[in-house]
Simulated assay, not measured.
Amino acid sequence: MKLNYPNAQTIPLGVVVQRSPGVTRWTKFAWKASSVLPGAPDADWKILRTEDGVTEFHAATLPLTLYVSDAEAYAHELQARSPSVYVVLRPNDATADKPWSVALVTASPYEAQDYCDSAEELVEKVTMPEGLHAWIASFVDQHYEEEVFVKRRRKNMSVDQTEDGIGDPRIRQVSDVYRAPRRREVIN
């Protein structure tokens, strides 16, 4: 089901997954999302290259959709030292040669954090290519307006009270309420 969102923009984004030899005897291979390909055609675990036991696959092409409601998150990510997109991989038990399925690609660090809360998915941070960075920056410039900080002013404060902060006004006292207690003398 495709939903229409006003002012949303979408681009197809290919996900490159790297398989390298495992470093322990319990893990045969280590998998990670290594890069993205903006505007890539559809693919299903197409081998891109193999070198020294490391294989890179064009695992899938998913839509990267930017929403106006998430423009603040995109602006936050663009200010990072290394702006990135996030790839969410889910375990796929169907085949041993394709142990992961690409579930989502997002430019929002807030959405990626939501997927990190679950231990089921693998969330990989992948550096944005320059063209993708420019496209997202253009979207942010067009749709994001930083909210101006307005200091809240106190209301309903009565400043004409004469006994402001001096004891309980219901109890009548002749002397200072902050006086030190005196010791009572006992007469025999």
Rank of each mutant, 00 (worst) to 15 (best):
Y67R: 02
A71L: 01
E72S: 03
A73Q: 11
H76G: 00
R81M: 04
S82E: 04
V85S: 01
V85W: 00
V88R: 05
L89Y: 01
L89E: 02
R90S: 13
R90F: 11
P91Y: 01
P91C: 01
N92I: 05
D97F: 08
K98S: 03
K98E: 07
P99I: 02
L104S: 07
A107F: 06
A107R: 10
S108K: 04
E111V: 07
A112K: 04
D114Q: 10
C116Q: 09
A119L: 11
A119T: 11
E120P: 06
E120W: 11
E121M: 13
V123R: 08
P129K: 06
E130A: 15
E130H: 15
A134N: 12
A134R: 14
W135L: 04
W135G: 02
I136T: 07
A137I: 12
V140M: 03
H143C: 05
E146W: 03
E146K: 13
V148E: 06
F149C: 05
V150I: 08
K151P: 03
R152C: 08
R153G: 12
R153Y: 11
R154A: 15
K155P: 11
N156A: 11
M157Y: 15
M157D: 10
M157I: 15
M157Q: 15
M157G: 10
S158L: 15
S158Y: 15
Q161T: 14
Q161V: 11
T162N: 14
T162L: 14
D164K: 09
D164A: 10
G165N: 13
G165E: 08
I166P: 00
G167D: 00
R172E: 03
